[in-house]
Design a binder for these strands. Structure first.
Lengths: 194, 194
DNA sequence: TCCATAAATTGACTTTGGTCAATATTGCAG
DNA sequence: CTGCAATATTGACCAAAGTCAATTTATGGA
């Protein structure tokens, strides 16, 4: 017989996530140790892995929390300029650091179902598609593809630009970033050309 | 004073890579243990890490070897049909498994400089751009962006489709794959529309 | 209230990636 | 050929993720 989730369970999960949040703000995702998480949360190691499949799933949950707060305010863009602002904003969030890029690559698709990240991305795509549909109706954007396809294409460009912007240990990080940025804009223009 | 690379060094590196190749064909990338690699190669653990930064860099080197053999035969596509065949081929190679997708996401950009993967991708992009340039001249493909930009955009779409095709533990893997496949084609058409 | 059992938690233990001071081998100048 | 400095190799050791049998705690029916 299957029972309802205990309040205790949710409380423990929240304590773990809160601990994770604290650590990430101080040491970044790369510096997060599960030992330290359970220490701060006041649980045993096993509890951590009873709640989250592995370290990466935990980080993905933290990232989803954090991105949700940033992405929620972004509504459907009403014109080309607003669209480009949204793309730029999402790109900046996604390219924040190498960990973020890796987590998004791994969990933003169907593989991340149930973690929050996938739904988050879907919502952004839906809002983009909504805006694109209106722009297509006004002839502001080409109608060579359905709005949903265009929206997903734009997300693909953002992911790619974010990945490209992750320059390992080069000194020319700024140049690489600028190039990725420009590429995103040029490709978006090509895709949207009326 | 800096000396020339010893033959011994290259031999050791080759033994490690050969061992890795064997293991991957049997157990896949996820099943590769560094212990087993050095056991088969007949070296100490430390030698492995003297040659490769970490396990992922080693896997990236293996992947680069393997992809090089597959990508080299692909010339510059002469027309739209040939272009779509190349895209499909590259997509299939990249979407082979979750490890491949993750490695490409991490090392195909500037972060993977010197590992071979980045150059491999660049070569494909260059050949695509070459073909696209000719097609643009014939009016077969839209000239809304420079050929190099279009080529990189197409690679972005391939990466995205490959990532989307990685369905964790769902039974509907086939449906997900088909959706990713269709998306790639539709977005490519939108980008190339004359 | 009481008990059977599902669910949650524990922490010692295992696995595995990665380090490093010590050692062995090689290239090269004299 | 010889000695020395650069390079390569070694393997014991460490750090941290992840496991699991045992234990505790909550739930819902009788």
């Amino acid at each position: 017989m299957t029972r309802k989730v205990q309040a205790r369970t949710l409380a423990t999960r929240d304590r773990l996530l809160a601990a994770g949040r604290e650590i990430v703000t101080v040491s970044g995702m790369a510096g997060l140790r599960t030992e330290e998480v359970v220490l701060r949360a006041g649980t045993a190691k096993g509890t951590f892995f009873a709640h989250f499949t592995d370290r990466d799933h935990f980080l993905a949950a933290l990232l989803a929390e954090s991105l949700a707060g940033e992405l929620a305010p972004l509504g459907a863009p009403q014109d080309r300029a607003a669209l480009m602002r949204v793309l730029e904003r999402v790109y900046v969030l996604f390219a924040a650091d190498a960990e973020t890029v890796a987590l998004l690559a791994r969990f933003s698709g169907p593989a991340g179902a149930g973690l929050g990240l996938d739904r988050l991305i879907c919502e952004v795509v839906d809002r983009l598609a909504e805006g694109l549909g209106m722009m297509q109706a006004r002839g502001e954007v080409g109608a060579r593809a359905r709005p949903e396809v265009l929206a997903e294409g734009l997300m693909a460009l953002i992911f790619h630009a974010a990945a490209s912007a992750q320059c390992g240990m080069h000194g020319d990080a700024v140049a690489v970033r600028a190039r990725a940025d420009r590429l995103l804009v040029e490709m978006a223009e090509a895709l949207l050309w009326p």
